[in-house]
């Protein structure tokens, strides 16, 4: 006897807010195309419920200087000599299939001298010229220097619809003001907590920033280092968004590359159990697994570091979008 099963479809009240990054010449910028995030009306990749209008995007990190010792060998060797030249690195990153370039400023320049707004302008200009992709720009994460660098970049790239980060509850006003004045967007970074994420979105919105220009960064831990907290916070934020809580409807960005390559699993070549397997493979798999889990839990942008992870995650997203 044939059994008829009704496909269990959920009805959602809300959708994720669309955010359009990058401005073309017609829109007052120089990008070859713009990129829309968000718009989903269901949980990730449940095509039987609703087609996602825009897939999650992959951003690739480019630094203002060669990361050197900050990155383990399997990661630096994957890029090679381009690490010395942000423009060449940007082009290599674009060639891996990146949807966006995430330019990350360190506290120092290539000579080890402190970074300044002036130097940041030069690096930013070179990167902007090297690619037509929309850009994310991250400061080094120290309030004063973040403000100096991001204000300089915001002015230099006026009209480009850059995504500037990271706004945190202790330091967001200057960045938001610079973004507002120059037609940019901001990321709102909070430490793995649904309510904190919501609050910071509200604070930034209260400064006059339209919600269509805010991307949240709910933060994550790497696989084995607290990923379950980030994973569940993202699931909860996305469920809240779909249930109609308007202040949780921002697209989400997370940085699995940064987190995964800090772990011992990615960094330690020797003195680890044989059960961990080959170093280079395991290190790469650590970034892949971290990023993949976050894509499943509703990330709209994952910021990655290894070219092979980019290929794998792009492949995974393309497969999942077929639903």
């Amino acid at each position: 006897m044939p059994v008829t099963v009704e496909v269990p479809v959920e009805k959602w009240a809300g959708t994720v807010r669309p955010v359009v990054l990058g401005a073309t010449a017609a829109e007052g910028g120089t990008r070859s195309h713009s990129l829309t995030l968000g718009g989903q009306a269901t949980l990730p990749f449940l095509g039987f419920e609703a087609k996602a209008p825009h897939p999650p995007r992959v951003a690739v990190e480019v630094w203002n200087r060669n990361p050197g010792e900050d990155w383990p060998e399997p990661l630096t060797s994957a890029w090679g000599a381009v690490l010395d030249d942000p423009a060449a690195w940007t082009q290599a990153a674009e060639a891996t299939g990146a949807d966006l370039i995430a330019l990350r400023f360190a506290t120092v320049d290539e000579t080890g001298a402190p970074m300044t707004g002036g130097k940041a302008r030069q690096v930013f200009k070179a990167v902007l010229k090297a690619t037509g992709l929309p850009l994310i720009v991250f400061g080094p994460g120290q309030a004063e220097l973040d403000n100096e660098i991001l204000v300089a970049v915001a002015e230099e790239g006026a009209g480009e619809r850059l995504l500037l980060g990271s706004c945190e509850d202790k330091n967001y006003r200057t960045i938001v003001a610079a973004a507002l004045a120059n037609g940019h967007f901001v990321t709102a970074r909070t430490p793995m907590d649904v309510n904190l994420s919501k609050q910071l979105t509200i604070l930034i919105h209260d400064m006059g920033m339209p919600l269509e220009r805010i991307v949240t960064d709910p933060t994550t831990g790497a696989l084995g280092y607290g990923i379950e907290y980030g994973y569940s916070v993202m699931e909860r934020l996305r469920l809240a968004a779909l249930q109609g809580d308007t202040m949780t409807q921002q697209p989400m960005l997370v940085t699995p590359g940064e987190e995964a390559w800090r772990t011992k699993e990615a960094r330690a070549a020797e003195g680890v159990p044989a059960a961990w397997g080959d170093w280079a493979t395991r290190a790469l798999n650590w970034e892949t697994m971290t990023a993949a889990a976050l894509v499943e839990s509703a990330a709209d942008i994952v910021v990655l570091r290894h070219p092979e992870t980019v290929r794998r995650i792009k492949h995974m997203i393309a497969e999942l979008q077929q639903a």
Binding site: I227, Y231, G277
Partner: peptide
Amino acid sequence: AKYAGFVVLSRFEPAEVYPLLVLRANL
């Protein structure tokens, strides 16, 4: 993560098994 009771891998490769076991332990 979603939502198998058992997963069969085609091969035994520690550098793949370790991240999968940690993911499972975390979730």
